[in-house]
Design a binder for these strands. Structure first.
Length: 91
DNA sequence: GCTGAGCGC
């Protein structure tokens, strides 16, 4: 299950999120969105967890909680292909 | 070196 984490600290890294989410279950991968233009964090990230139960538990536990000094928001991530853009080509 | 809603190249 992919989790969407928003309102993170600009200094928060993928490893930090991984360690936090690993406390609730197995984290397949943690990916903090880094801006290609500035090279800095955009303020949100995506965390993929192997167990769905752990993912829901992490949402209920980490949502609206303090992380690195900032109150983060954890929700279920939407499919990247649905958003459209340059990479996702449905044809 | 900064800001602060929302969805990844």
């Amino acid at each position: 299950m992919q989790l969407f984490v928003a309102k993170l600290n600009y200094s928060t890294s993928s490893d930090t999120l991984k360690e936090v989410f690993e406390q609730f279950g197995e984290v397949a991968s943690a990916n903090v969105i880094i801006d290609r233009e500035t090279g800095r964090s955009k303020g949100f990230a995506f965390v993929e967890m192997k167990d769905d139960d752990a993912a829901n538990a992490a949402i209920s536990a980490l949502d609206n909680t303090d992380l690195d000094g900032r109150t983060i928001v954890v929700k279920k991530a939407e499919p990247r292909e649905s958003r459209g853009g340059g990479g996702g080509r449905r044809f």
